[in-house]
């Protein structure tokens, strides 16, 4: 069996090592905690009228999504762009199905049930 393509040691695990102080991750952690507690706070204190409250939570949630994608999930790093696009597309499909489906189901727009 030809094994000439292996040089040096053979590695088992995927390397997770990165250099430098993890500023990105710390900013991400602080931001995601702040966003979570902000939404909890405005709900618990009824800080806004109900319509504005729901809008505010959705906006905060979308912001949270971007924090996760860019600061934790390394979306901007160039490796594996094609599989990234696939994963994002499937993620959007599932998210859309769940959110739109739930709204549709929970509306109980039925005249005959």
């Amino acid at each position: 069996m030809d094994t000439s393509h292996h040089d040096g040691y053979e590695h088992t695990a995927v390397s997770t090592h990165r250099e430098g102080f993890p500023w990105k991750d710390i900013i991400g952690l602080v931001l995601s905690l702040a966003l979570t507690f902000t939404s909890l706070h405005i709900v618990l204190t009824h800080a806004l009228p109900i319509g504005a409250l729901i809008t505010a939570i959705v906006v905060l949630a979308v912001f949270q999504l971007f924090v996760q994608l860019f600061l934790f999930m390394h979306l901007t790093e160039k490796t594996g762009t094609r599989s990234n696009i696939g994963a994002m597309a499937f993620g959007l499909f599932v998210a859309f199905t769940i959110v739109a489906g739930s709204i549709w189901i929970m509306a109980f727009n039925s005249s005959s049930s």
């Binding site: 499909f93 599932v94 199905t97 489906g101 189901i105 109980f108 039925s110 005249s111 005959s112």
Partner: peptide, 21 residues
């Protein structure tokens, strides 16, 4: 796999979400 995310209501048809759903 893709379809498996689009069928969940069949576990509770009788909840009454309506004919269209």
């Amino acid at each position: 796999a893709a379809l498996s995310f689009t069928v969940w209501v069949h576990h509770f048809f009788t909840m009454g979400a309506g004919a269209a759903v």
